[in-house]
Design a protein around this nucleic acid. Structure first.
Length: 493
RNA sequence: GGCAUCGUGGCCGAGUGGCUAGGCGCAGCUCUGCAAAAGCUUGUACAGCGGUUCGAAUCCGCUCGAUGCCUCCA
């Protein structure tokens, strides 16, 4: 189903700073590249938010019927601690610290990354390439840039010549910076610095003898610069110009700026049609960060073992929390906000359950087709999931009204409503129904049925002392009884 | 200091020239033996000061405040 033919999608392009009508380079096909994690530590929730935003975007594209090639890399080499000459590779540093092989570090945290994303119900990308798997491609690009005269070699390292590049191109166009301003605001080079200018960045770094991660190159043993891997891998799998490049807002400068420079210098054309940037998740009003320790790990949220939150939250509740904010807005994590989202999430899930059991009538008081298009309109407007969710709640409200007998719905509309909700809630937003704790233990269910039966017998006999005793003791155990019209059910907290 | 983004009702969070976003909480009601749960109903807020306009939270200017980037981070 090529739904995209009937929908006009707009995306916020960071390059122009405007919302633009999205038109893929090749009709019906989308190439999307997203900067993945540097696997030198566990992913924290802030990292997850960015990837989740693009997971949602990937999901929506697929739903619209586009053939999407989604490339998300793993940075397993080349990401330096800082830009100084003594800058150390993050992976290598961690390996030294833990006294293990660099590739053990990479393996450990790649596995953690995948496990975490799986809990959040991510779809796997089409290709997940690694930097170390593309050293040859990176070297080839360096050669091209050298040939074009936009880079220079110094003592076994190769640097990108930003000043030279800026003579014919515009360095800083993505982040809204002017090279002159940057020059005026940067520190002076030290005498031993190999770079010609402070703005220059490394394409290839010479490996000192003690350096473990090293590859041979025309300039001697060394390792690639961080910005280069994304250029190499995106070009290889998506071509010299592709549709969408995504990543966290914090990568806009210098990382993405450098990617543009590398691609323009080597291929002579701008690599990306639409730049999409996901905004930061903050904690206590500050950006989550690995280096400052202001962060929380997903596992700490799922187990409740942390100092910030009052309870544990299910992955889907957290996902719902994030989807209630627009991906380009800063979102602050707090217990109050998460608590509110969890309740909203449960309300949505209950609505979905109620819909299944709804009895149908001859007419509908709820215009499903109009409502359905509103859902698409929300997503078509730069993936506005908060608006979409508002519409989903509108549907829940009608479902409840129908359930209470105050409105009716036709069989045909019920099916359409169910399909649409399933599409947006499960396929696009990527939620899972985790609100009802499905305990497979038949023994527990049997015991609970027995207790509920005994309590209801006591209630029928007006023996409220006994019935309340059962209820209160179960509450103390964290089991809540819910008396409804159709009998009593229970949930475990 | 430079560049950028943003300041919305008790909280979270959309919107962006005139029309109730939504969720949570609070309150009222329904249901209930009572409660919980569930459902329904209810909120005219947009940092401050000026300006443009018939009309601005939405555009412009200034002030104040917050955050991000400028050295690693999604």
């Amino acid at each position: 189903m090529q739904l995209y033919k009937n929908q006009t999608l707009k995306v916020h392009n960071s390059l122009s700073g405007k919302k633009e009508v999205f038109q893929p380079i090749n009709e019906g096909h989308i190439g999307m590249y997203v900067c993945g994690p540097t696997v030198y530590s566990n992913v924290h929730l802030g990292n997850c938010r960015t990837f989740m935003s693009f997971d949602m975007i990937f999901r929506y594209f697929k739903h619209l019927g586009f053939k999407v090639r989604y490339v998300r890399n793993i940075t397993d080499a080349g990401h330096l601690e800082n830009d100084a000459d003594d800058g150390e590779d993050k992976i290598a540093k961690k390996a030294k610290l833990e006294q293990i092989e660099p590739m053990e570090v990479v393996q450990r945290y790649t596995v953690d990354f995948h496990n975490t994303l799986q809990k959040f119900n991510f779809l796997p990308p089409s290709i997940e390439p690694t930097a170390t798997g593309h050293i040859i491609e990176q070297i080839e690009i360096i050669k091209e840039i050298l040939e074009k005269g936009y880079a220079y070699e110094a003592n076994g390292s190769v640097y990108f010549d930003v000043l030279k590049f800026n003579e014919s191109n515009e360095y800083g166009k993505l982040s809204g910076r002017k090279l002159e301003d940057m020059i005026a605001n940067t520190r002076e080079l030290t005498a031993q610095d190999e770079k010609r200018n402070p703005q220059d960045f490394a394409l290839w770094k010479k490996a000192e003898p003690q350096h473990i991660m090293r590859w041979p190159s025309p300039w001697g043993d060394g390792f690639p610069g961080w910005h280069l891997e994304c250029t190499a891998m995106s070009t290889k799998y998506l071509g010299e110009t592709f549709d969408i490049h995504g990543g966290g807002m914090d990568l806009k400068f210098p990382h993405h700026e450098c990617e543009i420079a590398q691609a323009e210098a080597s291929k002579g054309k701008s690599p990306v049609k639409y730049w999409l940037h996901a905004n930061m998740l903050t904690l206590n009003g500050k950006k989550m960060s690995k280096s400052t320790g202001n962060n929380i790990y997903p596992s700490e949220i799922f187990t409740g073992e942390n100092d910030i939150l009052s309870k544990a939250y299910a992955p889907s509740a957290v996902r719902f929390f994030m989807m209630q904010a627009h991906y380009t807005s800063i979102l602050d994590l707090s217990d109050d906000a998460l608590l509110a989202s969890e309740k909203g999430y449960n309300r949505l899930m209950d609505g979905m359950e109620n819909l299944k059991n709804l009895s149908t009538g001859t007419k509908s008081d709820f215009d499903i087709n109009t409502w359905r298009q509103k859902c698409y309109d929300a997503m078509n407007d730069d993936f506005n999931t908060p608006i979409l969710i508002a519409h989903l709640f509108d549907a829940v409200k009608h479902i409840n009204l129908i359930k209470e007998g105050n409105e009716s719905i036709s069989e045909e509309d019920k099916t359409l409503l169910l399909n649409t909700l399933n599409t947006f809630v499960y396929d696009v937003i990527g939620l899972e129904n985790q609100s009802t704790v499905k305990d497979d233990s038949n023994a527990l269910n049997g015991v609970m049925d027995l207790l509920i039966e005994l309590r209801n017998q006591a209630r029928a006999n007006k023996d409220f002392a006994t019935s309340d005793q059962i209820r209160d003791k179960l509450t103390a155990l964290g089991i809540q009884l819910k008396d409804g019209k159709d009998g009593t059910s229970f949930s475990i907290n």
